[in-house]
Design a protein around this nucleic acid. Structure first.
Lengths: 189, 189
DNA sequence: GACATTATACCGAACGAACGGTACAGTTGG
DNA sequence: CCAACTGTACCGTTCGTTCGGTATAATGTC
């Protein structure tokens, strides 16, 4: 079996237990592979397993979010589609974000650059949609940042309250909120 | 020396390395205490160290946020004060949130109830200010949730982008955003 | 077709290191 | 003297990792 087979399983483990908590014993048990076999597929060890999962998630982001945002159509509808995809990947707010987990764990430094690139790409893609819709460069960048902030924050709060409704509510209102009339606190600062 | 002495040091370690990453060796080195001394002050081991830090943070939240919010004065100004205090504790966005770290690490279950209580108390305190200002119960609850979401999310994004400005920007606009005219998407959903 | 070779997938057992935690004999300060 | 505290040495466990080796299937060679 190719190593891609085990990506969903690995993603689940890292999301549930974090980088340190997802021990090779747990990974071995969950995949059904002996530890030695894991090192056959992932010679780089645990770090490589995370990297492969990040490869997968980057591909997912590109195909399901970035490309969706760049397709023709109403800005509001494109943002709506993005939210739908995002809701799927986080299972309606029940699953935490792997990027955040890696940022707040002990492996911060190892994966920080990749996580940073993911956030940047996501924010820039949203901002592009908003500028195309006529929004000023600065405001678009801020609102795009706010969108990712809202996604990440609502995931945290949903985890904290043990209730996915904050995430779902945020995702429901996000597209309209992003497109709301320009100029409200445009001059702010 | 009383064990409270070591709380700032412990907080720093847990924020930097997470629960698993903050090993007893690191804690011993950072505090200057041998393992035996650590277990004299914290017989419950690492878990108790976290609990004591959480005690401290709960006390801090109560004295610096909840009480501030309940004091008399303009709602906007009270929210402004809250943001000032919150900015301090997160060092302007350079420090992550311990609650989020505990939520996303392997010790999730152990501390989940306490973290949940903290988020609940914080949200409810903000909501109370907003209802006092004449906002409807439902909208106040949602906006209060949004406030905590914005704080947590902007901390994550600031960590991710390795740049505290998203957090600072969010904190700067938060009070006004919370108080903005009632009824905009009141009927939504 | 028969045989040797190679590549792929997998595993049991063990490795050294580090983990969280403990036992105990000091040592210090009131 | 007594209690609070600490240094040293140690415990058992688990960590991530590696070694040596075994099946199975594919590939090349005559």
């Amino acid at each position: 079996m190719p190593k891609e087979t085990y990506i969903p399983c690995l993603l689940r483990l890292f999301r549930q237990y974090g980088y340190d908590g997802a021990t090779l014993s747990k990974i071995s048990e969950a995949t059904g592979l002996g530890k030695a076999s894991l090192y056959h597929h992932f010679p780089g060890g645990k770090d490589e397993m995370v990297q492969v999962v990040l490869d997968y998630l980057e591909r997912w982001l590109d195909q399901n979010v970035l490309q969706t945002l760049q397709r023709p159509g109403e800005p509001l509808s494109r943002l709506q589609q993005m939210c739908d995809r995002v809701s799927e990947v986080y299972e309606g707010g029940k699953q935490p974000c792997l990027s955040a987990i890696l940022l707040l764990g002990s492996a911060r430094e190892v994966f920080h650059d990749r996580v940073k690139a993911v956030y940047r790409a996501w924010i820039d893609a949203i901002a592009l949609v908003l500028t195309e819709a006529g929004m000023s460069e600065n405001l678009a960048q801020q609102r795009a940042e706010d969108a990712v902030i809202a996604v990440q924050g609502s995931l945290i709060v949903s985890q904290g309250l043990d209730n996915p409704s904050p995430f779902q509510r945020v995702m429901h209102h996000l597209p309209a909120e992003l497109c709301r009339a320009i100029g409200e606190w445009e001059m702010g600062e």
